[in-house]
């Protein structure tokens, strides 16, 4: 198997790991959201790239024997992008509310606010 041929999967995995790492390592809620978005974007890339057919073109009906890319993953990921946007929106609005309630968006400071330690 050709490693370079799998470059899209490498990109997916690297992005996914970056996203997860930010998500786990950062205490700032905004940064967590950034991590989450990167993580989700990685999945978008995986889906979009896997619909690619070698030599295929955009799936617009044309005359003749033309190879098309698989449109289904693209459609699916449109939905997933919407879901991702919604998640980000809900997350960010929660952060706004948290900021109003606590005056901070740092996880450890929120901990101190709540439990005093």
């Amino acid at each position: 198997m050709n490693l370079l041929g799998l470059v899209n999967y490498w990109a997916f995995i690297i992005l996914m790991m970056i996203g997860l790492y930010i998500l786990l390592s950062r205490g700032n809620l905004i940064k967590k959201m950034v991590g989450l978005s990167v993580f989700q974007t990685a999945v978008f890339i995986m889906y979009i790239s896997m619909g690619k057919v070698q030599g295929g073109t955009a799936p617009i009906l044309m005359n003749g024997d033309v190879a098309y890319s698989n449109p289904l993953p693209h459609v699916l990921i449109l939905t997933a992008i919407v879901v991702g946007v919604a998640t980000t929106a809900v997350g960010l609005s929660l952060i706004v509310r948290i900021h109003e309630a606590y005056g901070t968006i740092e996880e450890d400071e929120i901990q101190i606010e709540d439990f005093g330690t």
Binding site: L36, M50, L72, P73, V90, G91, L94, I95
Partner: peptide, 30 residues
């Protein structure tokens, strides 16, 4: 106000879980 942080925590975990599920579904589709 702890409801907000609880919800956020759930959102992060839930979104990660859902994304894992999408990855699984994608791989099955492949």
């Amino acid at each position: 106000r702890k409801a907000l942080t609880a919800s956020f925590q759930y959102l992060i975990m839930g979104a990660v879980g859902a994304t894992f599920i999408v990855i699984g579904i994608g791989l099955m589709y492949v």
